[in-house]
Amino acid sequence: MTDDWWAGRRNDLLATISAELRLWGEDDLDDPGTSELARLTAVIGVEAAADHRCPALAEAGLLITAASAELGCADRFLGTFLPQVVRHLRAAHTLLRQARDRLADQPGPLPAARRAERCPAPD
Rank of each mutant, 00 (worst) to 15 (best):
R102Q: 15
L14G: 03
R39L: 09
R118C: 04
E47H: 10
F81S: 10
A116D: 04
L13H: 07
E59Y: 04
G72P: 05
A116G: 11
Q84P: 01
L78R: 11
A38G: 06
D28K: 12
P109V: 02
T34D: 00
E47Q: 13
L62T: 12
L110Y: 06
D75P: 04
F77E: 15
R97Q: 15
T16L: 11
L110N: 07
T41L: 00
R115V: 08
G25A: 03
D30V: 13
L40H: 01
R39V: 06
A66G: 08
R97F: 07
A66L: 12
A15V: 09
G33P: 01
F81E: 14
R87E: 15
E70N: 12
E26A: 10
A56W: 02
A48E: 07
E26S: 11
A91P: 04
S68K: 00
V85P: 04
L96T: 05
L63S: 09
G61H: 05
A60Q: 05
D28W: 06
G79C: 08
A60R: 04
G108E: 13
Q84E: 15
V86H: 06
R114I: 13
S68H: 08
Q84D: 12
L57G: 06
A38V: 03
A74L: 06
Q98A: 15
R102Y: 03
R114Q: 14
H88T: 02
L82V: 07
A69L: 12
V46P: 01
H88Y: 12
T80L: 13
G25W: 00
P111F: 02
A56H: 08
L71D: 05
R118Y: 09
E20S: 15
L82R: 09
S35T: 14
C119R: 03
A99W: 04
A69M: 09
A69D: 14
A92C: 05
E36K: 09
A113T: 13
A92D: 04
P107R: 08
R87T: 12
G33F: 01
E70S: 15
A49G: 06
R97D: 10
A42I: 04
R102V: 06
Q98R: 15
A104Y: 09
A66S: 14
G33M: 00
G45M: 02
A92E: 01
R90E: 15
G72A: 11
E70L: 00
T94H: 10
E20M: 07
A58S: 15
F77G: 01
C73F: 12
A67N: 01
P109L: 08
H93T: 08
T34I: 02
D101H: 13
I64G: 02
A42G: 10
A113D: 13
E117V: 10
L110T: 11
T34A: 10
G45Y: 05
P120D: 09
L37E: 04
D51K: 10
L96R: 01
T34F: 00
